[in-house]
Simulated scan of single mutants.
Amino acid sequence: MTPTAELPVLSAARCTGCGDCVAVCPTHCLEMAGPVPWLPRPLDCVECAACATVCPADAITLRSVDSE
């Protein structure tokens, strides 16, 4: 992860729980936690934005996060 990373941030209020983001993640760093996904391994995220792109509810955005 770079010093400033663009990590997915989920809006639980918008999420429908479809799991499309989990299915498309190339590094499998997203997992379902009950009805919504979460990011248990943020260091595995390659910042590809596939999760945000595939989300039909626009519930995922990428936000800059300082990794230090």
Score class of each variant (00 low, 15 high):
M1Q: 08
T2E: 11
P3N: 06
A5G: 05
E6V: 13
P8C: 06
P8Y: 09
A12C: 08
A13I: 01
R14S: 09
C15T: 11
C15W: 01
C15R: 07
T16L: 12
G17D: 05
G17P: 03
G17I: 12
G19R: 06
V22K: 03
A23P: 04
V24L: 14
C25E: 04
P26E: 09
T27F: 07
T27G: 14
L30E: 00
L30P: 04
E31A: 15
M32C: 12
M32N: 07
A33T: 11
A33I: 05
A33V: 10
G34F: 07
P35L: 03
V36W: 07
P37E: 02
W38L: 10
W38E: 15
W38G: 05
L39A: 04
L39G: 02
R41D: 00
D44F: 08
C45D: 01
E47R: 10
E47S: 10
C48L: 09
C48H: 10
C48E: 02
A49E: 09
A49N: 10
A50K: 05
C51R: 03
C51E: 01
C51M: 03
C51L: 03
T53N: 14
T53D: 12
V54C: 10
P56Y: 15
P56T: 14
A57R: 06
I60G: 01
L62P: 00
R63S: 12
S67T: 15
E68A: 05
E68F: 15
